[in-house]
Design a protein around this nucleic acid. Sequence first.
DNA 1: TTAGGGTTAG
Length: 580
Amino acid sequence: MHCCILKMGFENDVFVGASLINLYSRFRGLDSAYKVFVEMPVRDVGSWNAMISGFCQNGNAAEALDVLNKMKGEGLKMDKVTVSSILPVCAQSNDVVSGLLIHLYVIKHGLEEDVFVSNALINMYSKLGRLQDSQRVFYYMKVKDLVSWNSIIAAYEQNDVPTTALGLFKEMQFVGIRPDLLTVVSLASILGQLSDETVSRSVHGFVMRHEWLEKDVVIGNALVNMYAKLGAMDCASTVFEHLPLRDIISWNTLITGYAQNGLASEAIDAFNKMEQCENIIPNQGTWVSILPAYSHLGALQQGTKIHGRLIKNSLYLDVFVATCLIDMYGKCGWLDDAMSLFYEIPRETSVPWNAIISSLGIHGHGEQALQLFKDMLAEGVNADHITFISLLSACSHSASNRLLEVDSDNVGYYVLLSNMYANVGKWEGVTKVRSLARDRGLSKTPGWSSVVVGSIVEVFYTGNQTHPKCIEIYDELRVLTAKMKSIGYVPDYSFVLQDVEEDEKEQILTSHSERLAIAFGIISTPPGSPIRIFKNLRVCGDCHNATKYISRITERDIVVRDSNRFHHFKDGICSCGDYW
DNA sequence: TTAGGGTTAG
């Protein structure tokens, strides 16, 4: 075709050039596309954009950025298409600085009005884990299309905030936008995360009625994953067996499902079956799915065989794969091998440290585990909650005081430990850590919230029962909670750290200081007027979610200033993007 | 010439 174009004398036409670049980068390879690009006698912004998006769509982030820099070098300015093409590259290469600079450029040149540009910004921020920025872009968009909604729903789903993602899905339907296949892929993942079996089944039915399984392998994989997350492996495997299309991710999803539901033998059977399929090549995801199954069964021989295979392609140096190997050697009793592998791989994140600390713990080497924890901090690696769980189990013989000796003045560790105990229902642990913190003079500040009504500032402490309008306040909260529940609010009891029954947990959440202040604001000011709250600590996560519902039900703007930031709640959405 | 999706360790 290129020859025909040359014969017909169209080679100088920039539109033809851009189309050729586009066509070649999709079907013929980037080399051919780049050849057309460099041989073009005249290039306009469109030609550069075609080349940038060509590199980007094929995952060549570095080359895409290189072309962009050359384009700038020739004095050409980015337009809305350039920006939309380059933003996914920033996400791919985890380049926050470039992403922010391009966003500034967008604002300076008024490009945020373009729906492609804004959608690309939502997606980039989401992939960089900056949910708050995604939310802000979405919030200020004047025109939102299906892609905008899919992007913001996927953003919350992928950053593990499924409740908000589901709320946005409902809102999308409320404003009259019909879901497409990509919406349902996110929805399946949301329902798996929320363990909602009833709605999950109806989503499965919806997909079947639309015959989407024949259309795209991704939706089938999403359904297998959804059932696996619900613990319904019989349904997951039935869906898998009937998939018209299967790729490596379908297999990985099935294997992971079995392994994570404690069915290690079934995971290994599935892996062996997969090995029989000629066109399926295992990838990193396969190894991190199957290795834990071998660890679980103590199947060292099969595990070392996999290690051998991985040495040939250097995949054993991948931090996730290596962590699985460390864990396997640790669990199978080969601590020396676990240690030597640990010192061979990159250790910038907590992931491999957690695995080796946990391995040392299994073998009763509490002291050595503690030493590694110190080394980890000395190397500037941040500990996370898994580190503490690993350390706690490692130090179980010597149950956690030793852990607090490392940094005994850091009140955060006490709160973290106490929350960890609370989450697993070990209330005696909670009491012990709290009294330890109290003994050391590290008490937690009591939370209070204030609200201004007229010229008077009212202050509420959590659980206040003495305010003159106490009865009205709690009545208002009861009515609000019922309305909130009718439109999807589910109380999140993980924010209640007391060992009490569920109805009591709900009462505790309802009597948080910020909620009392909001309720007082509602009953004391004219309908529709804004409410301003100040909280001395960070606002509780469940109260944050509840306030979104309250802003929608009461049609009021609610501004909460907490110790961390401003939250502006309006029509069911918070300006902070739920990432505070 | 432009934007969106599925699996994964501790």
